[in-house]
Amino acid sequence: MLNVRDLTKRFRDTTAVDDLSFNVAAGEVLSLLGPNGAGKTTTFLMLCGLVRPDTGVISWDGTPLGPRRARTIALIPENPEVYPSLTVWEHIVFSARSCDVPDGWEVRADSLLERFDLADKRDTVGSALSKGMKQKTLIAATLIADSPVLLFDEPMIGLDPAGQRELREMIVDLSKSGKIIVVSTHMLEAAHALSDRALILKAGRKIYDGDIRKLAQENEDLESIFLRITA
């Protein structure tokens, strides 16, 4: 169980995230929704320890997590950044070695490359990859570390339709294996397909946390719901 309590972050006069609290159970997929500037990315960065919150506690199974919580909560950022002079395979090897993954990960790495259609790009350096390929490389390198909580920031952007479907299926598989998944997205259909629960942010504050279907009024589509709530 991931437990977030009273998370707040201010940048000078702007409150990016304001007193945010929520829980996510093992095997659950939570969709984090909100307009641009709502505080989704800042929330993710605080969860994985790359931004220091002003207040708040982040706990995993009842134990508060310290500054090195990225070992438990791994982020796959919106902008896929990879080492320009490292190959796809070398990213995975470095991730496995630096995270001290037990022996035998090579088989899993090979299957990840196959699954993401990266096998023929195995020896291609980062600077020569397309945005979608970089995204897949980063996801594969993250998955090899086997973190119990995965944060996907706008994961569908940059992926082709086949890649998007593959990622959706993989997220569902990961949640079934007991991992906690939090997905930030603007693609409401994707959010609906991935999860039943949505957490909506507006100007850093939580304005809704619950079943995504209960938001809908009669004959109202997802886009209208989103625009109505965040207006």
Partner: peptide, 11 residues
């Protein structure tokens, strides 16, 4: 930023 991403979650 890729350094921060990879090293922060490393052991």
């Amino acid at each position: 930023p890729v350094d921060a991403l990879f090293l922060s979650r490393s052991a």
